[in-house]
Amino acid sequence: MTSEVIRRLTPPERYQFGASVRPLLVPKHDPCGLWRDGDFWLAARTPDGPATLHLARAGGDLIATGHGPGARWITDRADAIAGLRDDLSDFLPLAMRHPLVGRLAKTFSGVRLPATGRLFPRLLRAILEQKVTGKEAHRSYRAICRHFGEPAPGPVELMLPPDPAAVAATPYWTFHPFGVEQRRTQALLRAAQVAERLERCADSPEATARMTALPGIGPWTAAETVRYAYGDPDAVSVGDFHIPNTVAWALAGEARGTDERMLELLEPFRGHRGRVCDLFALGGLGAPKFGPRMPVRSFARF
Rank of each mutant, 00 (worst) to 15 (best):
residue 302 F to W: 14
residue 157 E to A: 15
residue 54 H to R: 14
residue 206 E to F: 03
residue 143 A to M: 13
residue 127 I to F: 06
residue 175 F to Y: 10
residue 296 V to Q: 13
residue 255 A to L: 11
residue 217 I to K: 01
residue 51 A to C: 11
residue 116 T to A: 10
residue 125 R to W: 04
residue 17 F to K: 07
residue 108 F to S: 03
residue 223 A to Q: 04
residue 107 T to E: 15
residue 91 F to R: 01
residue 301 R to K: 15
residue 68 G to S: 10
residue 9 L to M: 10
residue 190 R to P: 01
residue 97 R to L: 13
residue 254 E to Q: 14
residue 112 R to L: 11
residue 197 R to C: 08
residue 68 G to L: 08
residue 57 R to Q: 14
residue 162 P to K: 02
residue 167 V to F: 00
residue 113 L to I: 10
residue 109 S to L: 12
residue 45 R to C: 03
residue 224 E to Y: 06
residue 88 L to P: 00
residue 201 C to G: 07
residue 98 H to W: 07
residue 7 R to P: 06
residue 95 A to T: 06
residue 15 Y to S: 09
residue 221 T to C: 10
residue 164 P to T: 12
residue 236 V to I: 11
residue 205 P to D: 13
residue 253 G to F: 08
residue 286 G to V: 04
residue 203 D to T: 09
residue 223 A to I: 05
residue 164 P to N: 12
residue 163 D to H: 09
residue 294 M to R: 15
residue 58 A to Q: 14
residue 174 T to S: 10
residue 189 L to W: 06
residue 99 P to H: 14
residue 71 A to R: 02
residue 132 V to Q: 02
residue 283 G to R: 03
residue 95 A to N: 02
residue 221 T to Q: 07
residue 222 A to H: 01
residue 28 K to L: 14
residue 229 A to H: 04
residue 219 P to T: 15
residue 87 D to E: 13
residue 295 P to Q: 14
residue 150 E to R: 15
residue 75 T to I: 07
residue 252 A to F: 07
residue 217 I to N: 02
residue 195 A to Q: 05
residue 290 F to A: 15
residue 121 P to H: 08
residue 55 L to P: 01
residue 162 P to V: 07
residue 57 R to M: 10
residue 281 A to C: 08
residue 178 F to D: 00
residue 121 P to G: 06
residue 281 A to L: 13
residue 29 H to F: 14
residue 140 S to R: 04
residue 216 G to M: 07
residue 132 V to W: 01
residue 299 F to H: 12
residue 145 C to H: 00
residue 49 G to M: 05
